[in-house]
């Protein structure tokens, strides 16, 4: 039996790229400082926004990787995850709630643990180019969350 250890995804990815003939290793983002914003109000008064790396399972979402805003209700029955790096040999993404926590957050709204769930959640594409993410996608997501008047954001990469 294999021992328990945190999988080194950076090392695995580097070796995987090399095996596919790429000569320049991918450089993961690294920062010496991390921003921190305290909550401005109790969680049971907060509106929560959700962001996923999964694309909508629509004709457009399946072919065009970009930012999408999707309604939280009804909860989508499926999301397009085919192009994302997840462990396809051992699991599946048939249950949307296993990677986008909408049903769970709705329960917490009912129980009073959070104030409300924003009426839409957002899809953001994973990118080889960190410049695209920082200069384009992050700014666009911020704008959409402000439109949604969210107080906190939960981000779930697959």
């Amino acid at each position: 039996m294999t021992e328990v250890y945190d999988v080194s995804y950076m090392e695995r990815t580097r070796d995987y790229y090399r095996a596919q003939g790429y000569t320049t290793d991918y450089r993961w983002a690294q920062n010496s400082e991390t921003p921190f914003t305290p909550l401005s109000k109790p969680m049971n008064e907060c509106r929560v926004g959700v962001i996923s790396t999964a694309m909508p399972d629509t004709e457009l979402g399946r072919v065009n990787r970009r930012i999408y805003s999707n309604l939280v209700s009804p909860i989508p029955e499926s999301m397009h995850t085919e192009e994302l790096s997840w462990h396809k040999a051992v699991t599946h993404t048939d249950d949307v709630n296993s990677f986008i926590p909408l049903e769970q957050l709705m329960v917490l709204v009912d129980e009073g643990g959070i104030g409300s769930l924003a009426p839409r959640f957002h899809s953001v594409p994973t990118e080889y180019s960190q410049g695209n993410t920082i200069d384009n996608d992050a700014a666009e997501i911020l704008e959409r969350l402000r439109e949604d008047e969210v107080d906190v954001a939960i981000l779930v990469p697959l």
């Binding site: 996608d137 992050a138 997501i141 939960i154």
Partner: peptide
């Protein structure tokens, strides 16, 4: 996704991944 979280946080929205 981590980069998006950092951008939101730097602009006043608390985040969790």
């Amino acid at each position: 996704m981590s980069l998006v979280a950092r951008h939101l946080e730097a602009n006043g929205i608390p985040t969790l991944i």
